[in-house]
Design a protein around this nucleic acid. Structure first.
Length: 193
DNA sequence: AAAACGATCTACT
DNA sequence: GTAGATCGTTTTG
């Protein structure tokens, strides 16, 4: 998959804007097993005033990456799954965008192998699923996704046309505020709920 | 040292 | 749609 690697300035923008702009961009992973890629179709912004933001109650060992430079991956485990976020905003402003779903592009066979399922709709339609499909591990926490060489993970602008972006309030226990948001591409068959 | 709590997934109705 | 599994991280005693 070819395209322009999203520069650090991209991630230095407001988190909500980054979440919106990431829709339609392409996530690429390169490992010894091969290359996998997919179009981002669902993201979730985690802003400063959001109680669900891991950094809301301060810095811990787990969320340390969020306090660092934008354009780095923040990977962590929940239940038995991993979640991939990209850090946004200037150093010291701990915000990030969760990649919730991608539409598989290249390396579908490798994804099937890693996931153990055949249905393309089940390959990467969920935060934990896409991490498994792309071979993302806990060790990828902190990797720079803006460096052309030496990064197993990059995000690129492949010039794909993007559908209309829909903003929906998140479902969850902390529903009091109008944040965070979830962005969906209308009509995409892979979005959850 | 123990308990509680999830930015989830799968299987099933 | 809902129920149950599941395990690392954080908080509390």
């Amino acid at each position: 998959m070819k395209g322009r690697i999203l520069p650090r300035e991209f991630y230095l923008q407001r988190t909500l804007l980054v979440a919106e702009q990431l829709i339609g961009k392409v996530l690429v992973s390169r490992t010894s097993e091969g290359e996998t890629s997919g179009v981002i179709v669902e993201t979730e912004a985690y802003t400063l005033n959001d109680p669900a933001n891991h950094s809301y109650r301060g810095k811990t060992q787990r969320n340390a990456t969020m306090f660092g430079d934008a354009g780095h991956a923040y990977v962590y485990a929940v239940h038995a799954s991993l979640c991939l976020n990209i850090v946004t905003e200037p150093v010291g402003v701990p915000c990030a965008v969760l990649i919730r779903a991608v539409e598989p592009l290249d390396g579908l066979e490798l994804m099937r192998l890693r996931r153990g399922v055949g249905d393309p709709r089940a390959l990467a339609s969920g935060p934990g699923r896409l991490c498994q499909a792309f071979g993302i591990t806990r060790e990828w926490d902190g990797v720079d996704v803006t460096s052309p060489e030496g990064s197993p993970l990059t995000l690129i602008d492949a010039g794909l046309a993007r559908g209309p972006v829909v903003r929906t309030p998140r479902i969850g226990i902390r529903v009091a505020v109008d944040l965070p948001y979830r962005f969906l591409v209308e009509g995409c068959p892979f979005v959850s709920r």
